[in-house]
Design a protein around this nucleic acid. Sequence first.
DNA 1: GCGTGATAGTTGGGTATAAAACTATCCCGC
DNA 2: GCGGGATAGTTTTATACCCAACTATCACGC
Lengths: 180, 180
Amino acid sequence: MTALHASLAGETAPPARSRAGARTSVPADTIDYGPLANWIGFRLRLAQNASFQAFAREASGIDLSPGRFATLVLIGRNPGISQTALSRANARDKSSLTPVLDDLVRRKLIKRMRAKNDRRSYQLMLTPAGEALLAKLTVCAERHDRHIDEIIGPRDRARFLQILKKLAAGLLVSGNGHSR
Amino acid sequence: MTALHASLAGETAPPARSRAGARTSVPADTIDYGPLANWIGFRLRLAQNASFQAFAREASGIDLSPGRFATLVLIGRNPGISQTALSRANARDKSSLTPVLDDLVRRKLIKRMRAKNDRRSYQLMLTPAGEALLAKLTVCAERHDRHIDEIIGPRDRARFLQILKKLAAGLLVSGNGHSR
DNA sequence: GCGTGATAGTTGGGTATAAAACTATCCCGC
DNA sequence: GCGGGATAGTTTTATACCCAACTATCACGC
């Protein structure tokens, strides 16, 4: 991350690339993306990438990665949620959650309590410290989101969001004749 | 991936979840996403996730991950490109590229040739086998893209794509007063 | 030609994530 | 109450990625 993205995005750094780069056959700003240029999947990856990093910047100084933020939000909004339900909501495998939650517990941001009637599962909830951190991060997230709004423009936002939702829904339904 | 996404997306699997799940405090379909529900960053991640998996399904049977596909396209479109330029175009760190290219070379899909006038850099190009595989994958990608079109609807596609581009560009320019 | 600073690629260390196998627990019908 | 089948969470293994440090090479000015 850093300058590599800049060059992809529209060149932030004009000073660089003048001697050595010019000889390496493809001068970086004249790259032919071919069909990639207009494939949704590719652009989606770039946008997600950028958003992730922008958020990380927004929340820099706070010792919690963007990925864990969603986890906190979901626990905060759904106290007592199980790990499995949380992993589903967050679209990550439940096994990925184990180390994350271990860490959050270690930092005393969440609590894991055994459910009364099902001793297999945990009930997750925020600690007061977790609530406090969540509040701080929410401010960052809102700033980030406002930043995105400036880029998209408020008119298109709703439409854009709706398409994102349709995409996530539509692409998944069509492919999983799975059992589980 | 699998049923977890389905439940998020709109429930493909009605048979499951009826007994055990009902008691674990938060029944998965009544999750409160709170502000997450309409945060672009979060939705972007879900959509990208879904797209990635859908593409993987489309190209299942072909032994090449979606990530490497973009690499092949870029090399095919820009013969002689250097690894650094490629990593930039693909928005990944150049160090991530090393093992990927090693693998592609091992499978005889690409060639790495030392540049004449700069013995530090390589010039990458497809082998005939690489061209052939690229052609096969392009078919998959086009099918995938058509699938996405069905979901988005052709009217919104261009607008959607444009917003994705603006987002990637806009979010990156504003955050890297980096040197590198 | 030689030092200085930049660049191409690799290596090493660390994080995030997924898939599959596993353990413990649960539900249900008999 | 017991056995079969499902579920919650963990562990193991493997992959993809980043960043920082490293080596080899280059370019330029003197």
